[in-house]
Every structure is written in structure tokens, then in C-alpha cells.
């Protein structure tokens, strides 16, 4: 059963822009799912709807098989969302208050809050920034604070909107390791991104979104090696696929199962046709003789 599912969601912003046109999406425990697509395709809106922060005009959001809206606000403890823009997410006077905010809301003792804040700050290299106001930080530091402010309360479902934005390669790698650890611990993680290389490294399944709809869904390896699909969604293939293509010089990614079957069938058909053509004159020759 899906941990979190969005079924046929439609959503329009004030002003009439239809961001979601019947998009569906599901997330299982111990799985990292990528939501990929070009800018403005509805990735952010899909995550906000999945987190119960935007109410879809049509469709439904299910958490553990039950409608999410019936479980709010209690279900908020299970859900964590990291916004695309850290400035939108951080509202406390200092980094420490920001990390402690959700824990204090959960009614934990100050000693426990302090312990958890220090642990997550150490994991994301924020220890020296704990007493700084969030607005005085760099973009990368703010993003790490935003991620830490959600990771600190161990949500069962983690929704990350462009998590690699503002992060340098060192922290991208650290984030990859963190996500893989979370997956191993049974968390369900969704990552909306247009960073296909990051998606190729961490995701198990991928949803490819185009114009408010899910254009394709499948295993990350399969979707991310399909150059045609990616091109339709305005994305470049991941670095290794592009490199493979360049090395092969044949202008196509590795064959998929369907393509392999079709190629094999065509080859066999050609082979049989050749054999029957080549036998006919020989037998006729024999007949004539």
C-alpha cells in the first residue's frame, strides 16, 4: 500500500493558471521517488498538494490509505516538506530556534530539543551557525537550515522541492547520503527536481511531469535513459547516459526490453526471409536438374 498518494489532482492558482491537470502520484515506505520536469510544469504544486498545504479542486490526497484532510493537523507530524525557496520556510529569529521550532510544537523537553538540534546541526554542518539569524546566511546555508528544520523531527514522509538548489557539490553528496540513510530507515521520500544527475543517483522511481500532467512514470533507470522522453519534458539525460551516447557515437541510449524484443524479431524475420529467398533458387536448381 502507498504511504502517500495523490489521485487525479487538479489545482488552479488565483488568476486562473492551472498548475495541475489531473496529476497522480504515489510514494511507498523505504522508497525515493523523483518528480522531474521543466520549470512551471507543476512539480512544486504537486508537492504542496501532497503535503496538504494546498487543497486540490478535484482529486484526493491519501496518507496510509485514508484522506489526508481528515487526519490534519495530527498528520503534520508524519509529513515534512522542504520548500524550494529557503526564505519562504525560515521564519524564526535564529537558526537554533528554527531547528527547535517543530520539536517545541511537539511538546518535547528542552533537553531533548537541545540534543536533537545539536545532532541535526552537526550532520548538516550548521553547528557554528546556531546563534545566527537565518536571514544573514548564504543561500546554501539557508537551504541546509531548511532541510535540517524538517529532518530534525524524523517525519515518515519527506517531500523535498529542489533540494540541491543553492548547494555545492560537497553538500549535494552529503544530502545524497542522508536520503539513502532515510530510505534505509523506512522513510518515504519524494524529490521534485530538474537536476537529473541527482535524481539518477538517488531515486528508485521517477514521475516525469509536463504541463501539469504526469507524462511518464517508471523505474528511474528506465525513464532517465530514455532520451526521447526526457527531451519531450525539456530535460537533458544524466551525465553518464550522455557520456555513453557520446562514446558509442550511435546517437541512442542502451536498448530497453521492448526495443530489444522488436529488434530481435526484426532480425529473425530478416534472417528467415533471407534463408527462404536463398533456398528457393537452390531447390529450383535442384528441381531443374
Amino acid at each position: 500500500m502507498s504511504k502517500l498518494a495523490v489521485v487525479g489532482a487538479r489545482f488552479s492558482y488565483p488568476g486562473g493558471f492551472e498548475a495541475l491537470k489531473g496529476a497522480s502520484f504515489s510514494l511507498r515506505e523505504g522508497e525515493i521517488v523523483g518528480v522531474l520536469g521543466p520549470s512551471g510544469c507543476g512539480k512544486t504544486t504537486l508537492l504542496l498538494v501532497a503535503a496538504g498545504l494546498l487543497e486540490p479542486l478535484e482529486g484526493e490526497v491519501l496518507l496510509d490509505g485514508e484522506p489526508l484532510r481528515d487526519q490534519l493537523p495530527e498528520a503534520r507530524k508524519k509529513l515534512g516538506i522542504v520548500f524550494q525557496e529557503p526564505d519562504d520556510q525560515l521564519f524564526n529569529p535564529t537558526v537554533k530556534d528554527e531547528l527547535a521550532f517543530a520539536l517545541r510544537q511537539l511538546g518535547l523537553s528542552e533537553a531533548t530539543v537541545d540534543e536533537k538540534v545539536k545532532a541535526v546541526a552537526a550532520a548538516l554542518g550548521l553547528t557554528h551557525l546556531l546563534n545566527k539569524p537565518a536571514f544573514a546566511l548564504s543561500g546554501g546555508e539557508k537551504k541546509r537550515v531548511a532541510i535540517a528544520s524538517v529532518l530534525v523531527y524524523d517525519p515518515e514522509v519527506l517531500l523535498l522541492d529542489e533540494p540541491t538548489a543553492y548547494l555545492d557539490s560537497r553538500w549535494k553528496k552529503a544530502l545524497e547520503s542522508l536520503l539513502i540513510e532515510l530510505k534505509a530507515s523506512g522513510a518515504a521520500v519524494a524529490v521534485a527536481t530538474h537536476d537529473v544527475d541527482f535524481a539518477a543517483r538517488v531515486t528508485d522511481r521517477v514521475y516525469l511531469m509536463v504541463d501539469g500532467r504526469v507524462a511518464a512514470e517508471g523505474p528511474a533507470r528506465e525513464i532517465l535513459s530514455d532520451e526521447r522522453l526526457l527531451s519531450e519534458a525539456g530535460l537533458e539525460p544524466p551525465g553518464p547516459v550522455a557520456a555513453f551516447k557520446a562514446l558509442r557515437g550511435v546517437g541512442r541510449p542502451p536498448l530497453r526490453f521492448e526495443e530489444l524484443r522488436a529488434t530481435l524479431a526484426a532480425t529473425l524475420a530478416r534472417r528467415f526471409a533471407f534463408r527462404s529467398r536463398s533456398r528457393l533458387p537452390r531447390s529450383s536448381h535442384r528441381f531443374n536438374r
Binding site: L48, A51, L53, L54, P73, R76, K77, L79, G80, I81, F83, D88, Q89, L90, F91, N92, D97, F101, A102, R104, Q105, L106, S149, V150, Y153
Partner: peptide, 12 residues
Amino acid sequence: MALEARNFTGSA
């Protein structure tokens, strides 16, 4: 949305 997402109750 940021406040709602992290269980805001008013005692921060």
C-alpha cells in the same frame, strides 16, 4: 504554508 507545515500552535 511554512507555519502550517510545522505544526504551529502559537507557543514557539
